[in-house]
Design a protein around this nucleic acid. Structure first.
Lengths: 244, 244
DNA sequence: GGGGAGAGATGCCGC
DNA sequence: GCGGCATTTCTCCCC
């Protein structure tokens, strides 16, 4: 597979909005939010139907460079090829100097599916809203995941003594930032409603040491809640982890 | 390209630690830190030399699923193929049910290069440390990017009147979270050192409206600092953006 | 080497 | 376009 073949082929594939993949020995320079440079090596480059570009090294999770949807790709030169990927709107520019093409492939792909994820923070607040006794007996939720004038609050409602309760959910270990977040909501709602007593509850499967200290210092509470729909095996591991 | 061909080919390519790429119509289920399911559609799947797996849809920046380095991949079945990708150590499991193979390719790739990036938050604190007059005349930095007992503080030092100064850097627009972060450091250091006056300074190219209000309410200051090494054109855009 | 904790970066969603 | 929040995160430090 020669550089010349590739140069002849690419423009058509781009125009047909194919999903394009090629392996190349190349050098990559990027300018935009930051600047980066990567010396010569073998990489995989993907250009998707929406003109997203991804450059991957042969190891590691993350792309070493990427351009977002809507970039414009052009090929110049003969000796080494220069692939210019430009997104003037985002002020991003990626220049790939290609010395060898290992393989290339284009295919029209169809995929209208969206991934459905379970066990998210949203699922947690849904679960609490539907099963308020998970928090405590007598808890009556009023609102869930709403942009109130006090901010975006996961769940809030009244306890059995009609005291206002604000709940912040975290699907993993709760850290000091979560406590700050809870505090911000409680303080703001106290101020706005002119109330002295509002209970703040942090709901999560576990909590970090510092977060627990802060929580106590502020006079808030913690309630252990497992995010719903976890795998059987994952649940068990979590339960063992948290049985202290 | 038949499923049978692919089934015969894949194990060898995996064993040779090739970088493997194929296009497939498939269904994907993931369990691990969360759970997800994706119905039948066309995707690109990459398995790297280190056994990282990436599954990409024909549009969008991000992989719809991924497995980290060291996963174990096996292929089962005939009709639809089942690709099992398992990482028991991380308790992650990905099952890909493949009904069609559009193309496949494997290649041994060499790339020892590392990307070099400029314009990060660390570069900013370096710059301030080296050029303290960027903050103000007479500022004397003491420490840079240290995990102090008060947390991870970007820069701290004394002003010309020998008042302690804590600086938090953000390479982009500073938001309310940045203010909370600064506040946490200042409050904690006040408490520990028994000091009444510590100045808190937020250094960033710009600041959000809410963050600025919070900053004033807390009695802290903002200093406009451009992260170093940005592109000429990017700098200009930022300056125009911030000239109000 | 594994686990925990804090901070950062990016994407998404709603206004 | 901006603000606000979540995350299959990252990294470092500690045991």
């Amino acid at each position: 597979m020669s550089l010349a073949d590739f140069k002849t082929w690419l423009p058509g594939a781009l125009q047909r909005n194919e999903t394009i993949i090629f392996g190349a020995r190349c050098e990559i320079a990027y300018s935009g939010r930051a600047e980066s440079h990567l010396h010569l090596g073998d990489r995989i480059i993907i250009i998707k139907a929406d003109k997203t570009l991804l450059a991957h090294q042969p190891e590691g999770n993350n792309p070493v460079n990427h351009m977002r949807e809507g970039a414009h790709h052009t090929l110049e030169g003969e000796g080494p090829l220069l692939l210019k990927s430009e997104n003037p709107k985002l002020k991003e520019y990626l220049y790939t100097t290609i010395t060898h093409i290992h393989f290339y492939h284009g295919h029209t792909m169809e995929d209208g599916q969206k991934v459905h994820t379970k066990g998210t923070e949203e699922d947690m607040s849904d679960m609490i809203f539907t099963n308020p006794q998970l928090i405590e007996e007598g808890f009556k939720p009023l609102s869930r995941e709403e942009h109130t004038q006090y901010g975006f609050i996961d769940v809030f409602g009244h306890d059995k003594d009609n005291i206002l309760v604000i709940i912040e959910c975290k699907r993993q270990n709760a850290d000091p930032k979560a406590v700050e977040q809870l505090k911000r909501y409680v303080e703001k709602m106290k101020l706005t409603k002119g109330l002295k007593h509002i209970r703040g509850i942090l709901a999560s499967p576990s909590i970090s040491t510092n977060a627990e200290h802060m929580l106590k210092a502020y006079g808030y509470e913690w309630k252990r809640i497992q995010p719903p729909n976890y795998l059987e095996k994952y649940d068990k591991a979590q339960q063992q982890l948290n049985n202290y």
